[in-house]
Design a protein around this nucleic acid. Structure first.
Lengths: 223, 223
DNA sequence: TGACATCTTAAACATTTGTTTAAAATGGTT
DNA sequence: AACCATTTTAAACAAATGTTTAAGATGTCA
């Protein structure tokens, strides 16, 4: 009788079903989006009954929320750790080191898994039509990471002020996100010739390009 | 009896309904996406009957297609014209001029209209889950523009080769697209403080940043 | 006016959606 | 074995979807 979707158990063997549901749902949400994914599809992919979604999570929306709770924490932790690692390393950290490290830790979790199944799709979809509580994405992940990256960048590049550095981070993130999305788009659109570069190459381009762009702010500092 | 959705009439007074349908549908498709927009919503917004969509366009999908046929042509033309104008102007064109002109002609049609109703949303949605024929977006718009911009960039920056210039355009477009999307996301997420910059400012940042990034390729030219 | 093509309309169609329900199954403890 | 909480299941629910249908309205030309 007691609905387990309030306090998620960690010991009972029901955990297996919950994990299968989370994994299957994340794949389907990434591939097709929230509304295009039916609870029946999820249940079939997780090899369980439709009603289990409501039994364990209290509905499709809460399942989506639980997926994001985990992912946001993972992304925030790994990104913050990567910044911390560069800034606390031996010697004075180079701009390229920070950019490369951030780009890799930024992209790595996004492009894991199958082509259309990666976290990048889930993120892009959530940006375009949000199904999370207002501000959750920013509060629990984006803003803490931006904040840390901002201080790190200003420490390495003293000519940057608070206003400019926020815009620069936006431009940097834009390159990373669009790079992956566009690469996928090219590959899915039957144009094999265009943009034949793997992620490692693209990261190096982003690093060189962005380092040049940031250093272009060293001269005239006016906003 | 003869279904007009095969040869769209341009003279009869039925044109008014078709135009209202196209306009209303584009707004709704931009706001909610293709699948989340019901034909009943479109008909209500266009103030006509549900069956008119099938009568004039032969279905929801063909209506979507017709919207994109017009938009892709507009975008391609205006972007090509903007490149042509810079390159055929008096004197040797500066890199910043080309970047600024392209950025403006790129963004201008995307951000017209209401905040959530702009073409940028339609484009982002189509990128993530496509409802157009494979390759239509690239063939009819993106590739021709990329091609022209590529030649223009290489003419201004002789140190760029064909491989690098394609990646650089990708990074440039990424900044533009993500800038607008993220700006909208910030504004919709109840964080008024973050990223208080209007589009003109952002364009100037993109220009300065990208010019610096491109010039960073002047030195060591290795891919 | 009468005939015709064009357009508009409300209703019906078959599917699919998320959720609820109550019964059946399961597994451990007394 | 008997009892109990926990989990699984199939069926049913109301609501919404894109499309089709056939009847009605409208306007134009003879």
């Amino acid at each position: 009788m007691a609905a387990p979707h309030q306090d998620i158990r960690t010991d009972s063997n029901g955990r297996g079903v919950q994990d299968r549901l989370i994994e299957a749902a994340e794949g389907l949400f990434s591939r097709r989006g929230f509304n295009e994914t039916s609870v029946r599809d999820i249940a079939a992919a997780a090899d369980c009954n439709v009603a289990s979604i409501n039994y364990y999570f209290g509905g499709k929306e809460n399942l989506y929320l639980e997926i994001w709770r985990r992912r946001l924490a993972q992304m925030k932790d790994s990104r913050l750790a990567s910044i911390e690692k560069v800034m606390s390393g031996p010697g004075r950290p180079q701009l390229e080191d920070l950019l490369r490290s951030h780009a890799i830790s930024f992209l790595e979790p996004l492009i894991q898994g199958d082509r259309q199944c990666g976290l990048i799709n889930l993120m892009a979809r959530e940006m375009i039509d949000p199904h999370l509580p207002r501000g959750m994405f920013l509060d629990e992940m984006a803003i803490p990471v931006m904040s840390a990256l901002s201080t790190a960048l200003m420490a390495i590049c003293p000519w940057l002020d608070e206003t400019n550095v926020q815009v620069l981070i936006l431009l940097l993130v834009g390159q990373l996100v669009h790079t992956v999305c566009a690469k996928e788009m090219f590959e899915n659109s039957g144009h094999p010739g265009v943009l034949h570069a793997d992620v490692e190459e693209l990261v190096e381009h982003v690093v060189r390009f962005s380092a040049g762009g940031i250093r272009a702010y060293a001269g005239a500092n006016g906003a």
